[in-house]
Amino acid sequence: MSNNPTHSQSWTWLFTAWLIAAVATLASLFFSEVMKLTPCVLCWYQRIFMFPLAIILLIGLMPLDTRVVRYALPLTLLGLFFTVYHLLLFYGFIPENLRPCDKTLSCADASMVLFNVVPIPLLSLAAFSAIAVLLLKIRKHP
């Protein structure tokens, strides 16, 4: 199958998409399990859609099965939706509902910012949109 040029190209795109999903999954586990940052509610929704991508994209690679896009793209787009919503909240374009303070985390908290520079939801946006672009490319030229 690697003799076929378009096949080989799809493989590379899918491989890249999987690599991004795997790195994003491990990074998010690093934040929560190693750095002990507690994921906020919206982070959880993004995790819910990112974690399975690391697995099903890998299955789609061995051997190459471009139909995986059918299953992976909805997850990616839903993840992207929550990411965009999270970013709008984070930058204050939509207000977080006023609620009494409790121990649960605010999704617009400063602890979302890594090394005081990169907001974690921005990383999530980069990952989800890159995966979406790659999957759409494969869908166009399977």
Partner: peptide, 15 residues
């Protein structure tokens, strides 16, 4: 099979 090797290497490296 070269491709499967690449996947394996990627898993090992990011792990």
């Amino acid at each position: 099979m070269k491709q499967n090797k690449l996947i394996l290497i990627a898993i090992v490296v990011i792990g």
